[in-house]
Nucleic acid binder design. Structure first.
Lengths: 202, 202
DNA sequence: GTCTATATTTGGATAGAC
DNA sequence: GTCTATCCAAATATAGAC
């Protein structure tokens, strides 16, 4: 599902490497290294060495380093856009369900989000950071309204930001095991921001 | 207070540049650029050009790029360690006061934290990220206890992480204006994590 | 304390053989 | 589809003059 690969053959003649799909292997190695060291600090040489191929071989599959990153980000992009489109379609969105779905997506793409986190500045120029910011704004609007005041927005920022952080830092099993409470915690923050449960503090 | 500078002279003979303390100017320019573009993507040439000096001149004041970064991080380090030492000393620490003080420190050092955020991976090797993680663990312990279970810890993670994010993303005046509610939101998350206010969700 | 070189390394990227 | 060889640009860092 990740790349439109061209073959089904793992029984080819004398394939130099493991299975058959070098392109997918490159993406896998790159995502791991980007997440560990950041995009900028990871060189193509390093990725190539990990797979025991040459730099030049990478350039057959991806036209540039940026191109590789863009391909990596595609699944998240698709996922999130689809989710947001669904929200726009339905009239009423229960906050806890919105938060829950957002958490799920973050968990599913935790590796990429970690890479994003490791090297935020580099990723700005491929438009990734802008995308994420845009999604967050749209979610804010769904949760607290288009023109919420600052305190209300703060609740949304902490709720969504907290969920995203958790998804990245928790191991996948932990994230799954504690999904319920994660959402509950985020919801508490959201409500405290929106409704003056603790008035007279601004 | 930032660097142990050596002079008091702004009236020296024919000082090439603005005031007198080039070292401080370098730090200021570097922090701004690191925060804007990240550590890795900011070259020493760029910093030098901004101040209209040469790269080589930088090497007189700082032995390396890493050294410059370390110097930049010193004030935060001192501030946070002092705060944590104070917490260890006092017997009881009210959660909202702990959260508030943490927020204040984050706001005060927002520029550095932003740089940290922009290029997390590069900053790992100077030990900065490890430090931040260590501080967070110690704060977790203060807030929810040394051996809290995962749900409780999640409350602390979201509360502290959210405050840190807010401090970085908000303009200083906004941060000051909404400090009260920021702490209240974080506190709500903390409590929801610790006490099962919404039971049966794990 | 700052300058003009310059050394050294490493990165991304291309051409052309196999 | 992968390799060898190579180019080019840019960055960190150093040496030595002023």
């Amino acid at each position: 599902m990740i790349g439109a690969t061209d073959d089904a053959g793992d029984g080819s003649a004398a394939v130099p490497r493991t299975s058959g799909d070098t392109r997918a292997e490159i993406q896998e190695a790159a995502l791991d290294l980007f997440g560990r060291q950041g995009y900028e600090k990871t060189s193509l040489r390093e990725i190539a060495e990990r797979l025991d191929i040459t730099k030049a071989a990478l350039y057959y599959h991806f036209r540039s380093k940026e191109d590789l990153l863009r391909a990596l980000a595609e699944p998240l992009r698709r996922d999130m856009e689809e989710f947001l489109a669904g929200l726009d379609a339905s009239a009423r969105n229960a906050p806890d369900e919105v938060l829950g779905s957002y958490f799920d997506i973050c968990v599913r793409h935790a590796a990429l989000l970690l890479a994003l986190l490791r090297d935020l500045s580099s990723l700005t120029r491929v438009g990734l950071v802008e995308d994420v910011m845009g999604w967050r704004r749209r979610l804010d609007a769904v949760l607290v309204g288009e023109d919420a005041d600052m305190p209300a927005r703060m609740g949304a920022i902490i709720a969504l930001g907290g969920l995203q952080d958790l998804a990245v830092f928790l191991a996948p099993e932990q994230a799954r095991a504690h999904r319920g409470r994660a959402v509950a915690v985020a919801l508490a923050a959201l409500l405290e921001g929106a409704g003056p449960r603790t008035p007279g503090m601004d």
